[in-house]
Write a protein that binds this DNA or RNA. Structure first.
Lengths: 345, 345
DNA sequence: AACGTTTGCGCAACTGTTTGCGGAAAAAAC
DNA sequence: GTTTTTTCCGCAAACAGTTGCGCAAACGTT
């Protein structure tokens, strides 16, 4: 069935398309009577504006690209939810572009954004992205860019990230404060910047407490399955740790069963803490103390920043220099760490 | 920076835009020499076709709408992955439209698809959708529609779903065959059709085995948290079940800790089985026997059906009558059900 | 009554790309 | 050397909607 256009309405009423266009957007040039008539007929004919045509004329698409390294059940669903809620209210739509952890695909996704003339790009880089190589398209486009989570520092774009170093540092400090002496860390892909930062925080906290940081207590797991294996080995070693830090949801869900199976009392013999989106720790058994890395909040902030950039338009003209927003994750104690002997009270 | 258009190239070479257009798509009308020259300049000027303009001219957008009830960490990430992989290879892009479990938003999402003139819509309905009310826009559009997972039967569209009744039936039959007598089921939202079907399969299997189906063994949980509570109550009751069926990933992740905390031996005193996307059961402790409801496969099939409908174009003209594809989930035994006393071997 | 202002609408050009048609020049056929 | 065919490219319209400009009619002011 042919879609009703603005011309159809105009013809029907014997008037000019431009009049219809103006009437529908309450332009004062059009008289109240005619305007009402036009609107009524438009509704009756189920008129819906054609976004593409509008775009073509005024060069402002209502599409925003979202490039993520992969669609996993961890973190990204929350981020997407946050992004969607903000964008939808502003009348923007999201086009999803997973890179499947491939640099090539990432570059292609940027190209797709270009071809679809998105109003802006929100992106989180794949794990293999270490340099700004092949990212020139991003500049050429002139569209605003906001990075989140997995970012590259040298780029002149806004970024929304977690306080990675500080989070790990606090987590470990909490373990130490509650009596742990031999702390192990299970980390994600060592190529990732967030892994590096969290590892640094981990090491620094141990060092600052005057404890020894042992290499055999540091593992890198690329998946939940690897985390399961790494945790198993840790617990089965001659001198198992009495505190374990899991870097992400993906890590904790994999490693927790291994820790539980070891038969150690939790948290008395072995404390556990992780950085999490905030859902899983409540579901696991036992419930795991965590630092709340709120994906929804990251998504919300990313989208809000995006909208601001789009609407202000301060992006393309001068050489924009991005600002980094860091989120400070609160500590949520659920029982896998010992309680602090509270001095007062 | 201004985007280079086909006109820019034409002007640069002192020729007509139409010539450039034809040259770029290897139209035989254009001489080999000129064609090469055009292509070279196009590459040099970083020319990228403007999708919107192309669409406007030939009425075929490369956008496909994906309407889901909600962006959760369960099932949908897999589905999206399957969909993306298929669509991307065919040159289509995905526009994400979560309905947040709201009927109103669902209708609006359909309208958004209409305005963006998507080539097709893939949708999974929200839990409150029981009738075809307000779904007339779907027909008016004339765009192909493929439903998946949460579907409405009376609609004349293709559908990709799981064998819900049969899955639950097999799961329960397996519990019974391995010695369970008092089987409880933890289900999702009772409004959902898949809940109803799985519940029916559950009941039928118990009935067919000549066992008693007790009302107090049937719970409906709207979230992981509710599932945790329901499982806790079940295990704490005077006569706890010796077999538990969890309808989804969301249910099992919530209820498993409660079951484990009850202290019962698994699977000797209490067997557990669930329907799952296939990731979680391996991560949980203990690993849970499940029927593999493969979200990736659902997504893949949905997208493939979509492409076929778009390309064949057999959709809009005659009154299309959808076909339903049912996926048969395999049983994966991971240890929370007792082993069948194999007669042979 | 003559002039200035406001109101209300139409005309036409423009966005980037595609495509049917037409036509000049070159090549081929006679 | 003329006619026919082929090769190669330009012209212009079309897609749906927006917008600067123009212009007539109605209104308001001396």
């Amino acid at each position: 069935m042919k879609r009703t256009t603005i011309k159809d309405i105009a013809q029907q009423l014997g008037i000019n398309p431009s009049t219809v266009s103006r009437a529908l957007k309450d332009h004062p040039d059009i008289g109240a009577a005619l305007r009402a008539e036009i609107k009524q007929l438009a509704a009756q004919m189920h008129y819906r504006p054609n976004h593409m045509a509008v775009y073509l004329r005024q060069r402002s698409s209502k599409l925003v690209g979202l490039i993520v390294p992969e669609v996993t059940m961890f973190f990204y669903p929350s981020v997407m939810k946050g992004i969607q809620n903000v964008l939808h209210d502003a009348g923007y739509n999201l086009i999803m572009l997973p890179s499947n952890e491939s640099l090539e695909r990432e570059v292609e996704n940027i190209r797709i954004c270009y071809e679809n003339d998105v109003a802006g790009i929100m992106l989180s880089f794949s794990r293999y992205r270490h340099t700004t190589e092949q990212l020139s398209t991003l500049e050429e486009m002139g569209a605003p860019v906001v990075m989140f989570d997995k970012i590259i520092e040298d780029l002149p774009y806004d970024a929304i990230i977690l306080e990675d170093f500080q989070s790990a540092y606090s987590a470990i400090s909490h373990l130490i404060a509650t009596g742990c002496k031999k702390i192990a860390g299970i980390f994600g892909n060592p190529d990732l910047r967030i892994t590096q930062l969290r590892l640094d925080g981990f090491k620094q906290a141990i060092k600052d407490a005057g404890l020894e940081c042992r290499d055999e207590y540091i593992c890198f797991s690329n998946s939940s399955y690897e985390a399961e294996r790494d945790a198993r080995h840790l617990m089965a070693s001659a001198d198992p740790p009495d505190g374990i830090f899991a870097m992400t949801d993906e890590i904790i869900i994999g490693s927790l069963p291994s820790i539980v199976r070891s038969g150690k009392n939790i948290p008395e013999e072995c404390s556990i803490i992780c950085i999490s989106d905030g859902f899983l720790p409540y579901c696991l058994h036992p419930k795991v103390t965590f630092l709340h890395h709120d994906g929804y909040e990251v998504g919300k902030l990313t989208a809000q920043r995006m909208l601001k950039l789009i609407e202000d338009g301060e992006f393309s003209n001068n050489n924009y220099k991005g600002t980094v927003t860091m989120l400070k994750p609160p500590l949520i104690e659920l029982g896998t760490t010992r309680t602090l002997k509270s001095s007062t009270k």
